[in-house]
Amino acid sequence: MSGIALVRKPGPRVAEGIVTNIGREPVDADLAARQHDAYAEALRAAGWRTVEVARADELPDGPFVEDTVVVCGRLAVLTRPGAPERRAEVEGVAAVVRELGLETAVIEEPGTLDGGDVLQVGDTVYVGRSARTDDEGIAQLAALLGDRTVVPVDLRGVLHLKSAVTALPDGTLIGDPAYVDLPDLLVPEEEAGSHVVLLGGERVLMAASAPRTARTLAGRGLDVVTVDISEFEKLEGCVTCLSVLIR
């Protein structure tokens, strides 16, 4: 068993989720639900035990559970999302991480922090300075993660840091230099190729919308699992957004 994966099923209002940097497209809520089920099944097939946060049908962005909590070891930092209408999502996640026995801390007002802006690579924690995460939120996170090196990263034209860059199992950063300035980026062949979930060992999860990048990573020796998340991509979501892995 690799660990626990927190997930939250989408509700019937998922199509009303916030869209910031792309045009709004129709979202099929039923298809989104099926895609979410397949995503969770891919995590289970890789050895993760999925734990569901209680559905919150009144919160359209609820399935993007990554934004509500940052887990570092046994510490769960409950975020204060930059979009006020998303702050109610944190309560249900807080209940679950406490039930799991994690220590909790909270990002306090006036700071804002979205978990999608936090990329952990070894002892380094990159944090996107975005429309959703501000300097105060970054400073609070750095104080809570005192044994880690926290590196603020400026973004342009993208919602979250992990919309632009993630990391491979060996620590190589993969991302789009159009959105972020970080050294030694492996540039993917599709925008969605920037989004990688580390499932353990050399296995990674990617979106089906990045087939060329998936082939490239397989050529580097990685075991690539792909899932179709088209309905969530219409809402600026990616494979990292839909779970929080507790190792």
Rank of each mutant, 00 (worst) to 15 (best):
G171K: 11
T226F: 03
R203T: 15
T216S: 04
L198P: 01
A142C: 03
V121K: 09
L141T: 02
L222Q: 11
A192G: 14
G146Y: 09
G157D: 13
M206L: 13
L199Q: 10
L173D: 09
L186V: 12
L185Y: 07
Q140N: 07
F232H: 08
G116A: 06
D135F: 00
D154E: 14
R148C: 13
E191I: 10
L168D: 08
I174V: 15
E191N: 14
L145M: 11
R148N: 07
L159N: 01
S230Q: 08
P152M: 07
D123F: 00
G193R: 03
C238W: 02
V150F: 03
D184F: 00
G115P: 06
V153K: 01
G200Y: 10
V127L: 04
P183S: 00
A218Q: 14
E136M: 09
V153T: 05
K162H: 00
L199Y: 06
G115Q: 06
G200W: 09
A178R: 15
T216N: 08
G157L: 10
D176I: 07
K234Y: 08
L198M: 08
R220V: 06
I174D: 03
D117L: 11
G219R: 14
L144G: 08
R220D: 03
L186T: 12
E202H: 10
L159G: 00
I229Q: 04
D181G: 05
Q120H: 09
A210Q: 05
T149V: 15
L235A: 07
A139D: 15
S194F: 11
E190H: 05
P211C: 01
P177C: 12
S209Q: 08
S209T: 14
K234E: 11
D228W: 05
R203W: 00
R212T: 10
L113C: 12
T226N: 07
V127M: 09
V196I: 09
L161C: 02
A208C: 01
A167H: 04
L141A: 04
G193A: 08
L155S: 02
L185F: 06
G193Q: 07
L145R: 11
G171E: 08
E233S: 09
P169K: 05
T149G: 00
K234C: 12
L144T: 05
H195Y: 05
R203G: 04
V197P: 12
A192N: 11
A178P: 00
T226C: 13
V165Q: 02
R148P: 01
V121T: 13
A167P: 02
D181C: 00
V151Y: 01
L222N: 02
D117F: 12
D114W: 01
H160I: 07
D228S: 08
L168G: 12
D170Q: 05
E191F: 11
A208T: 09
A131T: 15
A139I: 05
G171R: 11
L161Y: 01
V227G: 07
V187G: 04
S163A: 14
P169E: 06
A207V: 01
Y126D: 02
T216F: 01
L186H: 11
Q140S: 06
E190I: 03
